[in-house]
Amino acid sequence: MTNVKMGFLSEFSFDRVGPIGVYIFMGVYSFLAACQLMALMKRSTSAKTQHPIRLMLGICVGAAAIGTLSFLLNTLWYAYHGEDQDNLYMAAKLLKAGSKYTLLAILLLLARGRCISVPLHGRDLLQEARVLVPLYIASVTLEVWGEFAQSRTYTTDSVYRTVIGDIIICIDIALLVLYLRNLCRSWSAETDTPKRNFYRTWGLIYAGAFLLLP
């Protein structure tokens, strides 16, 4: 099924973002990446600019920016050649999903008080990776299948309206519940007032990241 409103991209899957959306995201992510890079390079006597969470956030934003650039370049390639450039397409998919799950890893670590109330250890990263890496692989595989499978050419439903998509969404919701539970525990155990305020305010705001699809 074609999407006639997308012009030269009419043959693209309905699951894809159009060029205007890519330009907008590219601008936003580039700005955030530049800000994050400046923050990492800035020297300060009152703050640890290369904090582990800040480094992870830099990787997250950088991956999103490069992934969006890859999407944009792939779109331009498609305009001139009539087909995807496989390397750009896969790089965009991998980086886009990797950015989201890196962000979720950061939030799950914060909810457990890592880098805020207690130090971060390598085993903490491995613990989150055991859950998020399989979910990352499943999401990328599902999206690639959704855009190229023959059965998907006759539907306008999102790829996340499939059985596997529903499972991924349910796991995301379960991670949200786990995040909120750990956040409450960290808030209860913390005695420092500014840190308690951080858990109570920003911690709840960050929970919205779990409601976004990859």
Results as ranks from 00 to 15, higher is better:
113 G>W: 04
103 L>T: 05
85 Q>D: 11
70 S>N: 13
52 P>L: 00
81 H>M: 09
76 L>S: 10
78 Y>V: 08
54 R>Q: 14
107 L>N: 09
44 S>G: 05
45 T>V: 09
84 D>G: 02
53 I>D: 02
125 L>F: 08
66 I>Q: 03
57 L>Q: 05
98 G>A: 07
109 L>N: 01
142 L>F: 06
112 R>M: 10
48 K>W: 07
117 S>W: 00
89 Y>W: 14
45 T>E: 09
91 A>I: 12
60 C>R: 03
144 V>H: 08
116 I>Y: 05
133 V>W: 01
54 R>Y: 01
80 Y>E: 15
49 T>V: 05
112 R>Y: 07
137 I>F: 05
89 Y>A: 10
69 L>K: 04
93 K>W: 09
34 A>I: 10
126 L>A: 14
33 A>Q: 01
89 Y>H: 11
75 T>L: 10
117 S>G: 12
65 A>M: 13
94 L>P: 01
66 I>E: 04
112 R>C: 10
70 S>G: 12
80 Y>V: 13
45 T>D: 10
59 I>E: 00
113 G>D: 05
79 A>P: 06
82 G>F: 08
55 L>Q: 04
144 V>R: 06
97 A>M: 08
102 T>Q: 14
53 I>V: 13
47 A>E: 13
42 K>W: 10
75 T>V: 03
41 M>I: 04
131 V>N: 05
122 G>V: 01
116 I>F: 11
114 R>F: 04
73 L>T: 11
59 I>C: 06
37 L>V: 09
39 A>N: 08
61 V>H: 00
36 Q>G: 04
59 I>Y: 07
134 P>S: 06
120 L>Q: 00
36 Q>D: 00
102 T>G: 06
58 G>N: 02
39 A>D: 07
33 A>F: 11
105 A>K: 07
43 R>E: 14
138 A>S: 07
77 W>P: 06
67 G>N: 14
127 Q>M: 13
121 H>T: 02
130 R>G: 13
48 K>G: 01
65 A>I: 01
91 A>C: 09
142 L>R: 05
99 S>V: 05
94 L>E: 09
117 S>N: 12
69 L>T: 12
95 L>Y: 12
127 Q>V: 04
108 L>M: 15
84 D>Q: 09
118 V>Y: 07
132 L>A: 10
44 S>K: 03
38 M>N: 01
107 L>Q: 11
83 E>F: 04
104 L>K: 15
36 Q>V: 02
122 G>N: 09
96 K>P: 00
124 D>A: 02
126 L>C: 03
79 A>Y: 14
33 A>H: 02
45 T>S: 14
104 L>C: 08
75 T>G: 14
47 A>P: 00
65 A>G: 02
86 D>Y: 14
119 P>M: 03
58 G>H: 01
131 V>D: 12
102 T>A: 11
